[in-house]
Design a protein around this nucleic acid. Structure first.
Lengths: 192, 192
DNA sequence: CGCAACTGGTAGACACTGTCTACGCCCGTG
DNA sequence: CACGGGCGTAGACAGTGTCTACCAGTTGCG
């Protein structure tokens, strides 16, 4: 009845999520995860044939978590599309900066490049939501292109912020002006 | 007289640059670099006390290379600041996409976060050049903030492009529209 | 009921990694 | 000539991901 006896598959991912948020991405060794799950180092192989597949499963949790936070923040969706994009962007940046290890894992090259791991599919829902909102906020442009450009901008902000460069340039500790600048830039300036 | 007998310090970095551009960032193990340099695995320790320091030295070469390409592309600097920013952005994106391994190495978290490695200092010249050009293109705004936001946008484009998401959205194989969109977004639309 | 097959985990080996330490070689200076 | 000291070698160590042999329980089937 306890989650101690949950299937090893999900328990390994649980341990990985816990580990990456507390210790960082470098702590996600296969053997360490197995150790914390209380099994031998060969056990994960039964469910995840390779280390990368386990990491992908952990990263997928991150995308699910992000999508859930976005849906919760949007609520019933009565706000204007422009404001919904703003809150979604804020949720994303907040997630990236408070879950740095998970965010780093979610966008790792070797995980995303492999299309056999299906990690990119896990990122489609939240990205599709962004595309939809952008399309309703600006029906005159290619929503996928603008949404991609906006996401690229937000991702870059998260990265540069993460290693402190933007704090050096701005001196402040709030990413709001950068977020607003990005929204104005890609969606056009509007009332806020 | 031959570069075979160049100091081991620079030879190790040479080998690393060669290795990261041909094989990718995962090939940059300490022992593999030493092997290709024709020395034992303990030799690099004389010059680079840790593996990360050697990687930082290799990444520094990348920033120097990027700065040189930027300077060469700008020429005598008679173009308008706006166009100079455009060419600099194009040089950066082209560099990031043709030297994917090196670009990935240059922006690795564990290298940039450590301020003892001095990698961030190596990135300052080219970033300072961008700040200067942005300041002359738009004297009415905070140049460091806008330059940072623009760099974040370009970096995000490079990342998303690298793992194919933007190709899926655009379907084309040219980053020019994304670059132009970013420039228009952060510098305002002008004549091109 | 009995036996076979399969599921799910263990334990050890292998090659590889980064770091540390003890050891020498060789060359310049006293 | 002696002798340090810079410079590289070689081996050890802990840790990693992957592979393979094994084995206990359980399940399925005649």
């Amino acid at each position: 009845m306890s989650e101690r006896n949950a299937g090893l598959r999900t328990r390994l991912v649980d341990v990985g999520v816990e580990l990456v948020t507390t210790e960082g991405v470098q702590a996600l060794s296969l053997r360490e995860i197995a150790r914390r799950a209380g099994v031998s180092h060969g056990a994960p192989r039964r469910y995840f044939p390779t280390h990368l597949e386990l990491l992908s499963a952990i990263a997928r949790r991150g995308f699910e978590d992000l999508a859930a936070r976005g849906a919760a923040a949007l609520g019933d969706g009565t706000e204007s599309p422009r404001r919904q994009v703003a809150t979604l962007g804020r949720v994303y940046l907040d997630f990236a900066l408070t879950h740095r290890g998970m965010h780093e894992l979610m966008f790792r090259h070797d995980l995303l490049e492999s299309n056999t791991l299906g990690l990119r599919d896990a990122s489609l829902p939240v990205f599709g939501l962004l595309v939809d909102l952008v399309g309703r906020a600006r029906p005159d442009v290619d929503a996928r292109l603008v949404a991609g450009a906006l996401l690229a901008n937000l991702y870059g902000i998260a990265q540069l912020w993460a290693w402190g460069s933007l704090q050096l340039t701005t001196g402040k500790d709030d990413f709001t002006p950068l977020l607003d600048a990005a929204l104005d830039a890609h969606l056009g300036r509007e009332d806020r």
